[in-house]
Amino acid sequence: MTAFQIEDAQTGAVRTRPARSRNRHPASRRRTLLVFLQVAIVVAFLAVWQWGATGGWISTFLFSSPEQIISVLAQNITTGELWTDMGVTAQEVLIGFAVGAVGGSALGLLLWYSRFVADLSAPFITAIGSIPVLAVAPMMIIWFGTGLVSKVVIVGFSCVIVSLTNAYRGAQRVDPDLLDLMRSFGSSKTQAFTKAIVPGAMSWVVAGLKLNVGFAIIGAVVGEFISSSAGVGHMIVTGSSSFAMNQVLAGVVVVMAMVLAFGLLIDLLERALFRWER
């Protein structure tokens, strides 16, 4: 009986759609409503948390409170420590991302040149991709020291396989008829690559970059957990070892803000690259 009801509910939903689209701007109204609700949920969550902390039925030792987190952030801003930590992490992320995600995308596209090399390397790529970054990060620190280089390598390692695989898949999906057209004009393999494969695979490349925004920042934080003297991961791990939950959670907030900001940068890149889609 449940299956029947679900099906009914689905057809009902489909039937209401034309009616809704008679609104003047149904899409933008829906979007406004969504954003409004999302903000409302966050505000309600923070309010309940703060209320509980003030009322004493949420332990601030275990869970901190929005107020305490904000005061840690404010304090770290005044001392300038927050900017230093963010700067260190951002540098690791940006360089590591450029090496891993951008380099991985380039490699993935270049694999299009040789089906043989691509097939030969496929199992190795899968194998490397299955290694958890946590497992190899300590080794990277031993090999490359506790400074910037090891973090860059860890971030790069976190990004490289996803970007490589995505870019290669994108290159494979370019319409073979388009490649025939290039060939009929007498194009060289390199001309086909630059004029058809690279732009044709770009939406897959950008999708890979987007996935890697999160992976890059996780990679940097993991690296900093293991050994560091500054960075957002350092801020979290020192807070954690002294049971300062407000500092840990302040670090988490900073990480989230950085992921959001970095994601926005990639969105801008996407908009610039896909102007033709609108």
Binding site: D175, L178, M202
Partner: peptide
Amino acid sequence: YVLQKDLLMPWR
């Protein structure tokens, strides 16, 4: 040659 598919590159 010309095919049924126009094969125009959407990004150009």
